[in-house]
Design a protein around this nucleic acid. Structure first.
Length: 254
DNA sequence: GCGACAG
DNA sequence: ATCTTGTCGC
């Protein structure tokens, strides 16, 4: 069963708001060189949103800060969100980025000492049709180093067979044998979108790591791996779990 | 026209 | 994204 008016809604949103052009404008502000010195890293952030069941109007955004490298939780904050847009592949940031920027801004004002030197974002960075996913968007708007960590592969239309889902999957099945193994995601244009990373021995499926802002790819991969006990890196697992907990406690069961 | 598509 | 229990393996 498909959803005919989801398609209708998608096309109208794009026409009305020119999100495509907005991404192309902000893309020029992304910095792909490295600002992170892992030896000096003290705090690492994680962000995520959770949604109540049978409710497409509300969500809860969560920011966590963990001590590095102990991965102990040192901060968590939440923001309730009223959603205005549907989820559209390639335009996730327009649905999620604003509350995340607000949470970061509030933390910087209230407790600058624990403001994270880097943030892991649930979604993609430059692994994106216009090389400007949520992790880039959040990084640019907050001027904070960000890394995209996605649990699923986002299809990149114009980049040939090496970036097709079937091809990526088969390459991963062959190359990703144990924790730390990676597969490079390079398009026919020569652009490196990111890597598929096996973050734990027990998780067969990889995460997709890409540069968001002010970080290079090797540093990003190293950092994600060093935060990973399971498939999902601890900062993201924590933000995911706590925002879900918040939903349970603040919204009626449907 | 259909398919493919982070969360 | 969201629902859901136990269960298999180290």
């Amino acid at each position: 069963m498909s959803e005919p008016d989801a398609e209708w809604q998608r096309k109208n949103c794009l026409k009305c708001y020119n999100y495509f052009r907005e991404q192309e404008r902000l893309r020029s502000l992304v910095k792909l060189s490295n600002d992170i010195d892992i030896d000096q890293l003290k705090y690492i952030g994680g962000v995520d949103l959770s949604f109540p069941l049978n409710d497409n109007k509300h969500a809860v955004a969560c920011l966590v800060v963990l001590d590095y490298p102990s991965m102990k939780l040192v901060h968590s904050s939440f923001k309730q969100v009223v959603l205005t847009l549907p989820y559209i592949p390639g335009y996730l940031a327009f649905r999620e980025v604003e509350p995340l920027v607000a949470l970061l801004k509030d933390l910087k004002a209230a407790n600058p000492d624990i403001y994270p030197q880097a943030i892991l974002v649930d979604g993609n960075g430059v692994l994106h049709p216009r090389q400007f996913g949520l992790a880039c968007h959040l990084g640019v708007l907050s001027d904070t180093p960000c890394i995209g960590v996605a649990k699923n592969f986002l299809h990149i239309p114009q980049e040939g067979s090496s970036m097709e889902m079937a091809d990526v999957k088969s390459r991963c099945n062959i190359a990703l044998q144990r924790r730390g193994d990676t597969v490079e995601l390079v398009g026919s244009s020569g652009f490196t979108y990111g890597v598929a990373l096996r973050a734990s021995d027990s998780a067969k499926n990889p995460v997709f790591v890409s540069q968001g802002h002010r970080i290079d790819l090797p540093t990003a991969v190293h950092l994600v791996l060093s935060c990973s006990k399971y498939k999902n890196a601890e900062p993201i697992r924590m933000a995911d779990g706590l925002s879900r907990q918040y939903i349970r406690d603040h919204y009626p069961t449907s």
